[in-house]
Amino acid sequence: MPGFRNEEPQVSEGVGPGTRGRVLVTGATGLLGRAVCRQLRDDGWSVIATGFSRALPGTLRCDLTCEEQVHLMLQQHKPHVIIHCAAERRPDVVERAPDSALNLNVHATAVLSKEAAACGAFLLFISTDYVFDGRNPPYGEDDAPNPLNLYGRSKLEGEREAQRHCPDCVVLRVPILFGEVERVEESAVTVLWTLVLDSAQTCSLDHTQQRFPTEARDVARVCSNICSRRTQDPSVRGVFHYSAQEQMTKYEMAKAIGDAFHLPSDHIVPLTAPGPGPASRPLNARLACSRLELLGLAVEPRPFRAAILDCLWPFTPDRRWRQTVFH
């Protein structure tokens, strides 16, 4: 079938006879998907990594918007669990190209959910704090969503499609993510590194919107915890929140990155009015994570400065300088 590529190396069989089951991860070439795949393999799951535009050798290539391809993929691999990480997550891109974004965030989720139900797989759908308007934080799992932008609306519609076709699914809402990036532009957090380095240029960064930058590895551990518990307890279902608790604006993130690397950051100045852009953002969509915590499925997030050092040190310009900072 055009667009669908299936090769034997695309399935990682975990740790052998003791493997917990087969997990299919969509968006496995992205920031979160890569972290989820690594964590699941470490925890003994057999991982089927899938991607599309960035699919590499060892990754199953499938167009999630094509029902026939999704059906064939699930029938061939028969996963016990599906973790749906694939999405268009850039709010401004969603506003500029709504049709393609809705096709991935809503239609593809509906297709995958229907096929998951047909093959009896447990579905874990990754959603966002942007389903909330940010006017009355913190937000619990049962609070009414009211997204401000098309990205938030598309993810909320994705949640509804997942729950409509897979009533026993889990929806996991998370905030802005960062982690081990392939390029600094891959995350809205790590991209600040380039601004910190360019000390010759004054840079204004938003100092109004409160964010809760969360490391992808921590989210991956939560995903693995949910999957493991679900194999023992089918009552694990519904909406969950996971978030780090360090509150920062983009300006404060950039200053923290400078502090972590002992770099000057006086050239970064706060912007105290919302900047221009096609997509509105919530001022503070802080997530309350009590449901995960009550079930013992949450993990302690790593401090931002320690985590950002791990993520960005490969991009430091001078090895000798790196050794001085880290030792």
Rank of each mutant, 00 (worst) to 15 (best):
A254M: 10
S12G: 11
Q323H: 12
E159R: 08
L64M: 15
V25P: 02
P137G: 07
V299W: 05
I226K: 09
A55T: 11
E293H: 07
G27V: 05
H207K: 04
A28M: 09
T50S: 15
R237E: 15
F178V: 00
Q39H: 04
A117S: 01
V184L: 14
L148T: 01
C85M: 08
I226H: 12
V81F: 15
I257T: 05
R89F: 00
L72P: 00
R22D: 08
C119V: 15
V196E: 12
D318R: 02
G18L: 15
P91Y: 01
P175L: 04
S100R: 14
P270D: 03
P138V: 05
T249N: 06
V196G: 09
R41I: 03
Y130T: 12
G296E: 10
L60I: 13
K250P: 00
R41A: 07
R319T: 01
V23L: 05
N284L: 06
F4P: 00
C203P: 00
H107G: 02
P9A: 04
K78P: 01
L112A: 07
G140R: 14
R237P: 04
E180I: 01
Y151C: 08
A254L: 05
L283T: 10
T316K: 03
G3I: 10
Q201A: 11
N284Y: 02
R5L: 09
V269L: 14
K78M: 09
A87C: 01
R305S: 11
P234I: 03
A101V: 02
R229H: 12
D259S: 11
F4E: 08
R302V: 06
C166V: 15
S204D: 10
L72W: 04
D129S: 14
